[in-house]
């Protein structure tokens, strides 16, 4: 256990925990977009910035990456942080001015307008979708491609991906709803910011409902060594 202070509160925390997770466990709010317990911290959005002092030196760090240490003093709302956070939020708002989540978060942080030139993106390049696809689903269908201003989420060669099983984890984990995901009739549609794919859904033998992509079910059957007919029925019709 290590002892630390966050916003004047003295806390104890598990060694190796990040400032962000300790704060969250103690109901101290730090804005964040790119961190999610399901995947390893990554540090892309920089919204979770906090100010720390150790050995008399003060610096700004990304709280989702920084492990707690004995005697650490953390501030989540100093003037310096507020200023930096404003800048980051303004940049995000300029990148995605029409994104609802970004708009709400900006408003919540008291930022109405951005002084930067407006673009029209939905994606903040946090890579949560890519990381979920890699770390959780273990399918690695998508990645961040190109670089600089051309960086975006895509499947290889911008083509329908052989690897993708249509599970929709990317859409589910995206913090700003930049990925669309919809089941219509016997088809699932997944739309990433720059490409899209369709998946045939499996029909339940009993109730006749379409309930999951065939590709996903085949993948699970293969991975877990299940009987080929393991998913003939949907969860509701299974005994």
């Amino acid at each position: 256990m290590v002892r630390l202070t966050i916003d004047e509160r003295e806390l104890q925390a598990e060694e190796g925990a990040t400032i962000f997770s300790v704060a969250r466990d103690n109901n101290i709010y730090i804005p964040a977009l790119c961190s999610n317990e399901a995947v390893a911290p990554y540090g892309a959005c920089r919204l979770c910035l906090v100010e720390i002092s150790s050995n008399g030196r003060r610096k700004l760090v990304a709280s989702c990456l920084y492990p707690v240490e004995e005697g650490l003093v953390v501030k989540t709302n100093s003037e310096r942080i507020v200023n930096n956070r404003r800048m980051i939020m303004e940049l995000l708002l300029a990148r995605c001015p029409n994104n609802k989540t970004i708009q709400d978060l900006a408003r919540q942080l008291g930022i109405g307008e951005t002084s930067f030139k407006l673009e029209d993106n939905q994606c903040i390049l946090c890579a949560l979708c890519v990381r979920a696809c890699q770390e959780v689903v273990d399918v690695n269908a998508i990645s961040l491609v190109n670089r600089g201003i051309n960086r975006e989420v895509a499947a290889p060669f911008y083509e329908p991906s052989d690897a993708c099983i249509g599970c929709g984890s990317c859409a589910y984990i995206c913090p700003v709803d930049a990925i669309n995901f919809e089941d219509i009739g016997d088809t699932r549609y997944i739309k990433w910011p720059t490409s899209s794919m369709e998946f045939k859904l499996k029909k339940c033998k009993t109730c006749g409902n379409y309930w999951a992509p065939e590709k996903q079910l085949d993948y699970i059957i293969k991975k877990s060594n299940l009987a080929p007919n393991a998913f003939d029925n949907c969860p509701d019709c299974r005994d």
């Binding site: 690695n140 990645s143 961040l144 491609v145 190109n146 670089r147 499947a155 060669f157 690897a163």
Partner: peptide
């Protein structure tokens, strides 16, 4: 190495 990662490096 997954194709998505090779493609990511190749386009970087």
């Amino acid at each position: 190495i997954p194709l998505s990662q090779v493609y990511s490096v190749a386009t970087f």
